[in-house]
Every structure is written in structure tokens, then in C-alpha cells.
């Protein structure tokens, strides 16, 4: 029987939800909604970028080459499968 599990889950879930909702209501969570809109904006400022080095630029080009090779291999697999494997 699945009913006891569902009834237990629904009862517990509903009870907890109602308790939490009541707590939220009592503690004023649904008031001052205008201020709440700005909450994510109160934080530390972003850091300025640091300078790139020549070595890192070369490294990035190398990684870009590897990724492009991966894409090329993907295209080759598709081409082979679609046109040459019949």
C-alpha cells in the first residue's frame, strides 16, 4: 500500500509548510517588499581586471586549438557517418 506513505508525506509537508508560512507572516517577511527588491545589490564591488601575461596568451591559443580540433573531430565523425559509411 502506498497510501500511508503519501498521507504521511502530505500531512508532514503541509504541516511544515503552514508552520513556516505562519512564521513568515508573523515575522514580517511579507512586509517591506520594496526594500527586499534591493537586497542583492548591497554587496562588495567587483575587482578590476589584472594584466595578462604573454605566456598565458600562448596557453589560451593552445587550448583554443585543442578545442577547435575537438570540434573538427566532431564534424569529421558526422561527415563520415552521414556520407561515407553507407
Amino acid at each position: 500500500m502506498y497510501y500511508p506513505y503519501f498521507i504521511a508525506y502530505i500531512t508532514i509537508g503541509l504541516t511544515i509548510s503552514l508552520v513556516v508560512f505562519y512564521w513568515a507572516f508573523k515575522t514580517g517577511q511579507f512586509t517591506d517588499q520594496q526594500r527586499a527588491r534591493f537586497l542583492p545589490l548591497r554587496d562588495d564591488a567587483d575587482h578590476p581586471p589584472v594584466k595578462a601575461t604573454r605566456f598565458n596568451r600562448i596557453e589560451i591559443y593552445g587550448l583554443f586549438f585543442l578545442a577547435a580540433a575537438g570540434l573538427g573531430a566532431t564534424a569529421a565523425v558526422l561527415t563520415f557517418a552521414l556520407y561515407f559509411s553507407k
Partner: peptide, 18 residues
């Protein structure tokens, strides 16, 4: 969290989000 911060704008509606 990310969208309001990236846009540097408050959330459209916190009531709607709740």
C-alpha cells in the same frame, strides 16, 4: 541573485517572486 546584480537593478517584484 545574479540577474539583479549583473543588471545593477533591483528585482522587478519581490512579492511576485514569493
Amino acid at each position: 541573485y545574479v540577474i539583479p546584480r549583473a543588471c545593477r537593478a533591483p528585482l522587478y517584484s519581490h512579492t511576485l517572486s514569493l
